[in-house]
Design a protein around this nucleic acid. Structure first.
Length: 301
DNA sequence: ACGCCCGCCTGTAAGC
DNA sequence: TGCTTACAGGCGGGCG
């Protein structure tokens, strides 16, 4: 399941591979992947003939800024993959729903067996509109393009802060935590609180912070608040360095079809019954809100 | 208004 | 061995 580190890995590779490329044609094999649009044609029209200017990421969303100022938005859901293919002749994997062909050759394929993911084009406000005009930041803008791109995408207004793009002080983080009376795991996974954290990384973050999943967000000491913030940023940054996690029963692949490297560093996720790497007690698994939650009852208080 | 839970999906694996 | 069932879970929407 692609979460923030996996999507960020894709962003970095897309920035090198597709920025500056011109879209020759778009084909849609499964309309469900572009379900926000009235029809596949409404998805294809604003893309064909356009050049990709920059790539951003906000939460789990990829944002491709076009020369038209429209933005192609991609969410991989549970099982989505974006694959850069040099030769059009390479056999298409099953569940290839969208193919973007470039004029310079090669193509970008969107593959998604479970179709929870989606692609859509966020249309820029017209030039004579009273709405603020959209600015597509240059590629490799210092501080990231994601936050800048996201601000002009109304479809993503519901998202909270991005833990990597939107750094903040511990004091401000404490204020945000105290606005809610929620279990820490549920809050970390709430995309309108923090964008980009899913089931896997919420468990890893809480282990790194030494906090239980069911601690209340408005009941942390100052030191615990700092530990949580630090663990959140450092766990995600470390996973990005390792190009994300690919589990045995999952299909996360990077832009080139390669697996991630962070799964070997997992402390708790998918390790039920195995010894805690810190205290050797067995890792526990419980259900929280219907989702598997892994933790160490000795190391997390 | 907010929290909970279902429905959407397919592939894999456990269970009978 | 082969069929059925459970599980994986992000997100939108409906219900209490």
């Amino acid at each position: 399941m692609p979460e923030l580190p996996e999507v960020e890995t894709l962003r970095q590779d897309l920035a090198k591979e597709v920025v500056g490329r011109k879209i020759r044609a778009v084909s849609v094999a499964n309309g469900r992947s572009v379900r926000r649009h009235q029809s596949a044609k409404h998805f294809r029209a604003p893309l064909e003939g356009r050049t990709i200017r920059s790539i951003g990421r906000f939460g789990k969303y990829l944002l491709m800024g076009l020369d038209s100022k429209d933005i192609l938005v991609v969410h991989l859901g549970m099982s989505g993959q974006l694959l850069r293919v040099k030769s059009v002749k390479e056999p298409k994997p099953k569940h290839t729903h969208v193919v973007i062909t470039f004029t310079q050759g090669g193509e970008l394929r969107y593959v998604d067996p479970r179709t929870f993911g989606e692609m859509f084009v966020s249309i820029a406000p017209p030039k004579d509109s009273a709405l603020p005009q959209r600015v597509i930041p240059a590629s490799n803008t210092p501080g990231g393009e994601g936050a800048a791109l996201r601000k002009s995408v109304p479809e993503l207004e519901h998202l909270g802060f991005d833990p990597i793009e939107d750094m903040m002080s511990w004091d401000k983080f404490a204020v945000l935590l105290r606005k809610h009376h929620a279990g820490l795991k549920a809050l970390l996974m709430d995309q309108s609180f923090a964008a980009g954290i899913g089931n896997l990384y919420s468990d890893e973050i809480l282990f790194a912070a030494g906090l239980r999943y069911d601690r209340y967000s408005d009941g942390l000491s100052a030191i615990e608040t700092r530990r949580l913030y630090r663990s959140m940023v450092e766990t995600l940054a470390e996973a990005i360095k390792h190009r994300g996690s690919t589990l045995a029963d999952e299909q996360y692949r990077d832009l080139f079809g390669e697996v991630g490297d962070y799964q070997g560093s997992h402390q708790v996720y998918d390790r039920e019954g195995e010894p805690c790497r810190r205290c050797r007690n067995p890792i526990q698994r419980v259900k929280v809100g219907g989702r598997s939650t892994y933790f160490c009852e000795h190391c997390q208080i």
